[in-house]
Write a protein that binds this DNA or RNA. Structure first.
Lengths: 110, 110
DNA sequence: TTTATACATCGTAATATTGCAATATAGTTT
DNA sequence: AAACTATATTGCAATATTACGATGTATAAA
């Protein structure tokens, strides 16, 4: 159906999935990596850097912004985007909790 | 178009995105969390636990298996799935590298 | 005030994902 | 062999995502 049955899952499961979803596109990974290098960027810069149309970049930026992983500040005509430190840390912690909770020695079958 | 322009991006970017994609659904997070608790599971157990149809669970298991995050061993009639330790560690490292490479003090605009 | 620049939004086409019933496959039991 | 159990696969409908041209909006420069 293309529609996820969110009500079957816990809030944490839906939350984790939504953070993963925003990272689930190479363009958005590229935008984030660009921000990690340069700390700040705007739409036009990314259009030149990534090779996608302006409307497409704008859409990816909106998705990143909608989950709070980046934030934008209007600077005259352009908008400066940068990583949201608190949210970054929060997502990092959630993912760490998931990945650290695995103990390979527990499994006998593999 | 619904089609990602993978050729515009680096191998790492595409790889990271594909790992994120497999985590980008609450059912697959739930399956992983189930495996983290119990170490092993099979299709039928998950059908009872998650409340999705057998075919749907099977499809999610296949996606998790296709990126290598889980592995399945045939055990008579049923298949025992468990986390792939090497791949788990590998994905964990890739995500850590990404998330650890951010230094909030570098940003002046936010 | 006109023109230019930067960005967002709308509309749309192509493709991908989600979910499940129905069916196929394969081992197990009787 | 026939019936049963567990899982995979197929086919399909509903919805979501990706990409971009066209257009709207808002600030800056001329």
């Amino acid at each position: 159906m293309g529609v996820t049955k969110s009500d079957l899952f816990t809030e944490t499961q839906n939350e984790l999935a939504s953070y993963a979803k925003v990272l689930a596109h190479p363009a958005r990974i590229a935008i984030i990596q660009y921000l990690l290098r340069t700390n700040t960027c705007c739409n036009t810069t990314l259009v030149g850097d990534l090779g996608l149309a302006q409307a497409t970049i704008s859409q990816h930026l909106r998705e990143l912004k909608s989950v709070g992983i980046i934030q934008g500040t209007v600077e005259g005509v352009s908008v400066n985007y940068c990583i949201n430190p608190e949210k970054w840390h929060y997502i990092k912690e959630m993912l760490s909790e998931l990945f650290d909770s695995y103990d390979p020695t527990n499994c006998s079958t593999c």
